[in-house]
Structure formats: C-alpha cells, structure tokens
Write a protein that binds this DNA or RNA. Structure first.
Lengths: 351, 351
DNA sequence: TTGTACGCGTTATCAA
DNA sequence: TTGATAACGCGTACAA
C-alpha cells in the first residue's frame, strides 16, 4: 500500500503551543536529556559531533530561542541597563540616548527607557521599577534630584552613572561636559568680535549647569576687564525653553545688550523668534548665541551659532563607563570639552 | 554585668552582601518560612496581622524589592514590551516613542528601546534579542522590511503592532495615519490659494508612505481638473531628508512649480534652505508644504505650513492596542486622520 | 559521551 | 495560621 508521506519527513515536530519552546521540548523530540541539549547548543565539546548537529537542527526547526529570563535568574545578571531621562521630548536627551543605545547594543546590553518628567516622585518610582527588573546598572541624565533618592541608591548596589547631573554625590559616577569652559568659549568669541554689552539668559530648572555657564560667562568678562552688569543677567523661570527665550528679549530692549548668550539652543531660538516679531534683525542688531547644538539649530534662520556639547559622545562614554564598572574596573569621572560652532546668528556689533 | 548594647536594638539585621535581598533572607531574619514572607508581602489574609506587619517592617528595613525576573519565570509574563525603531535621531520617531512610553509606564509595562538603523539584518537581530528577553509584545515603527522576518514572527507568537509600516502583513496589527487623506488636505489647500503648478517632492526609502502621499496628491489634482505633470513629480534618493529637500529645488527652478508639497518636514526644510541660498523667497516666490509637523517646523523661518500626523497619538494608541491584545481582546487596525497646520511657508502664488 | 540532581527567586498547591 | 514542596527554564557539579 502506498502512502503519501514524502520521504523527507524524518520526524514529526510538535509545535503550535502558545508558550515558547524550551530545551526540554527539544530534549523530548531529540530523545535526550535537557542537559545534553543545553550543552549541544553551547557547543560543549563533551557532546558528540553528530548529536550536537542533530540537536541544533531540531532547535532551529522548532524556532528555539533561549530565555534570557531563566538565564538571568541563574547568572544574576540581566545584561540590561536602565536609562532614566526627564523626557524624550528634549532634543538634548535624544542624542544622549542615541549614544547610550548604540554602545549598549554593541555590547549585547538592552536598554530600558524610563522617563521621570523631572518629577522627583516619578524619578523614585522609575528607579524602583528598574531595580525590580534587576537592571545591571542605571544611567541618569540631567537629574535635578539625586540627593532625594540617594539613600535608596545606597541599598541598590549597582553602578550608577550620572550624565550632566545637577547634584553631587559620593558613590555616584559622573560624566559631563565642561560648562564653564564652554561658556568661556562663547563669551570670548563675542568679545573677540567687539561686543561689550553681552547678556546672559539663564534658567532656573537646571541650577547647577546654569550656575556653571554663568560662571564661565563672568570669568570671560572679567578676564577682558569688564565688570559684569547685573542688568544683563536674567535667570528666567518659564514653562518651556522657547517661552524663556521670548521673555529674555528685555535684555536687548531694556538693558541694551548687543549680544545675548543663552542657556541652551531652544532658549536662543525663542529669543530669535521674539526678536523677529519685534522687528529686530539677528545678527545685525542683536547677536544670539546658544548652547547644546541640537539638530534644529542648523535649520533655524539665521542658523544658530552655538556651543556644541558632545551629546552623542556623552552618551557613548556614559555607557562605556558603565561597562567598565560592570567589569569591576575602577573609573574616574569624565568631563568632556565643548566646542564652538560658528553659524550665522552672531556678528560684530552694529555701529 | 552591664553590656553596652542599647535597648532599641531588637534584632541584628545582616546586610551588605552584593546580591539583592530575597524573601529567604527575610524569612531567616523573621524566623518564618519564605512562603509566609511571600504571603505577608502580598497581603494574603491567611497570615496574621502581626506577622504581616512584622515581616513588612523587616522587608522595608532590608530594602527588599521583589525580583521581576523570578516572577516572570513563573508567570510567563515579563510586563515588558520591545519598541523597534529605525533611529531615535528621527524627530518623527521621538514623538511616537514618547506616546508609547507614557501609556506603557502608566500600565506598569517597561519598554526596551531597540534601533535597527533601517537595516534588515539589524532589524532581525533586535527582534531576536527582544524575543530572547521574552517581551510580551513588540511595537515596530516605520519598518521597511516586515516581509523579511515575517516567517520568524510567525513562530514568535506574541502581539506585534506596526506603526506606519511599509509592508502589509496578515497576522500583524497596524496603526497608521491616513497618508492619502493628509496629502489631499495639503494639495487642496494649495489649490484653494490659487496654485496650479504644484510639485511633489517624494522619497525612495519609505515606498509605501510615499506612494500613498503621491496618490493623495494626484487625486486632489485630478479632482480639480488638473492633469498631473510628471515633470512636477520627483522621488529623490538621498542620504538625508535635508539633502533630498535641497536636491528637489529643480521642481521650482526647472519645472516651474509655484508650490511644492514635500514628503516630510525635514525635506521641506531642506528645500527652504536651498531656496534661501538661491535667493528665492518663501512663500512669496515659492510655497513650501511639509508633512509630519515635527517640533522644528515651528522654529524655522518662515514657520513651516505642514500636515500634522498625530505622532504622539500614534504612539499612545499603538500601546493601547498592544495592551488590548495582551488582554486577549480582538482589535481592528486603526487609521488616524491628519490635520492641516497653517503657518507661514505657504501663500497665494505670486502674480 | 550522556544523565541526574540541584539551585537561582518567586508563587501555588497541598498538607498540617 | 503556617510550612514543606514543586514548578517556571536554564546551567553546572557530580555520577554513570
């Protein structure tokens, strides 16, 4: 009697359950113990070549993928890191995330994204969640808090790397760009063009960075023999960076600045928008300098002259530092220099 | 004999190992079984009030956090989803991620971020990694491939939600904005202002969306009794959207368009940059219309008139759909309408 | 060369 | 009211 079963059906592989296939499933099909399967898949030389091949073939056909969950439970390592950010809506953050993710992926680490919305409670909550998930390390960007949950972080004994953090901490590792040097760079450039009445438009929600940039600004002025004028310095509280920038227009209108150095690019863009609305030409009547070099800085009119923070590099090195820490290595904090990006929003002061 | 032990030291709580504390550690300290600890922490009414309180206090002091890894192994659920994106550098993607993450966090899900760089191999690799980590579901944005790994996705029997995907798939769920309607909206607006020679500046790396927007463009023209002129249609291959936009300037220069509808905002911005460089005024001589309504569209000069894709909403609803699927509910694909955002890069054609 | 037994941290079942 | 035991998927020490 002739059946229709084709020659090449060697074994009937049962599939179609909802659960992922495990080494036990493979073991059952292959007629060996799950231990043998485990060894075969890892290329353990103790297992005969034929068995290994056979098992691998079956595993492939059954679409087997090892469970990182089970492996983690055993190894006490999840190959996972948590990235705590204020909000992904911040273009500053985006580049940093990009840097972290790239290095992480290359090192076979996966990244949990967790946003805190600059809210201390939520920041505590996400840290707690990450710990529950047993991430191997945590990277935090631009946190205001730090001190708040520090006692908790003492208990969670995993590497913590802070990027441009606003608080100091003993047991934490940090990496940041050199705000002071960056601010000096900006102001020296303006001075070099002949500006004497230079404004500083700062913020209130990132006190530490703001303070550093202000210091750099003041240092550059003093070195040039100019006494900083308080009227030319404004730390504006506002809902958004753009709003802050618009609100800072008085530095030109009232205080008579010929150039304004802004806390960040979005603030600078806001200032330029307000200037245009008021019919003030940038840079002919007012020079505007940003900080960060976000992507949009290239596209605005005029293209924004700014201080570039090495955002991508900040993220990359943060992840590299994390890997080093996970490797048990000693690391020292890192401060990356900023660079000036000359575009068209700054010119010599009008006569 | 008098010892120095102070009265208030009720128990010596051993701490300071590198491993996180487990319920067994707590059980040892409390002098009960780990089962009791588990029950007490979960508020099981079988455990006496005092024992429960005592155990909870100890757990707190020891800084206990349950291991999601162990819980996942048992429950076969990780409360985790994977988000596959091309690159976080795309402002389009950023908003979508924001939407997904917000809803996920509220539902107590964590999000793995995985970038594919629009590279099919890497896309396969990240899907494999996510499966290894036993994510409960996967959300993919703007994938070109889809078909490539579909056979693999058949084996991984978890919900897959595609956002603005470029390929069709049977067993996949999808959510996207209505490209055709959005494009019609744009072109009808231009027609209403009196434009007759309207260009379309498209791309090659997002064939499906591009085709849909082109269709909408053509439909609007035909409905107005205008035969689409092939010279006014350009699908430009370029490294970046900005480059594509610059390259599309010939639609004005050679083909004599009075308005150009661009595939996306960055393309439109590139076109405006080139126009400015060539001394062509936007919108006086050339109207430029974008698509997406990314953040930068507000800041460029002139502010870009564009079609808003509901990016945040796309992300939100994708995650909500995912939650519904995880809940075993039936869902149907979603198409969200686009809206027109009038700004200043479009005007009536010059006489 | 292969299999058995145990443990990772947690929950569920059954027994006391 | 509490405890012992098994199980989730995997890897490893030890035994055969």
């Amino acid at each position: 009697m002739h059946t229709c079963a084709p020659m090449w059906v060697v074994a009937v592989i049962p599939m179609g359950g909802r659960m992922p296939v495990t080494i036990k499933d493979i073991a059952r099909v292959a007629g060996v113990s799950h231990t043998t399967v485990s060894r075969a898949l890892k290329g353990n030389p103790a297992i005969s070549i034929e068995t290994t091949d056979r098992i691998r073939k079956i595993a492939q056909q059954m679409g087997y993928t090892p469970s990182a969950v089970a492996q983690s439970l055993l190894s006490q390592r999840t190959q996972t890191i948590g990235m705590v950010i204020t909000t992904i809506a911040d273009p500053f953050v985006v580049r940093v995330v990009e840097g972290v993710e790239g290095v992480a992926q290359a090192a076979d680490y996966s990244v949990f994204l967790a946003t805190s919305h600059n809210n201390p409670n939520q920041e505590n909550a996400v840290v707690e969640t990450l710990h529950r998930r047993r991430v191997d390390a945590i990277i935090v960007t631009s946190s205001r808090v730090g001190s708040l949950y520090s006692s908790r972080l003492e208990q969670i004994k995993i590497p913590i790397v802070l990027i441009n953090n606003q608080e100091e901490g003993e047991y934490l590792h940090s990496i940041r760009s050199n705000d002071i040097q960056g601010a000096r760079l900006a102001v020296e450039y303006l001075l070099g063009l002949g500006h004497r009445r230079i404004g500083y438009l700062g913020c209130t929600n990132r006190p530490r960075s703001n303070q550093r940039r202000l210091s750099g600004y003041q240092a550059a002025l003093q070195q040039a023999g100019i006494q900083p004028d308080p009227n030319l310095i404004a730390n504006v509280a506002a809902d958004t960076d753009i709003e802050r920038g618009k609100a800072g227009f008085h530095l030109y209108a009232q205080a008579g600045a010929t150039a304004v150095f802004c806390f960040n690019d979005l603030t600078a863009i806001g200032l330029m928008m307000e200037a245009r609305r008021q019919g003030v030409a940038v840079p002919a009547q007012l020079s505007v300098m940003g900080f960060d070099n976000i992507e949009a800085a290239m596209y605005v009119t005029p293209p924004l002259t700014t201080v570039a923070q090495p955002l991508l590099e900040l993220g990359r090195q943060a992840m590299q530092m994390t890997l080093a820490l996970l490797d048990g290595k000693l690391v020292h904090d890192i401060r990356l220099p900023c660079t000036l990006v000359e575009r068209e929003s700054v010119a010599a002061p009008g006569r």
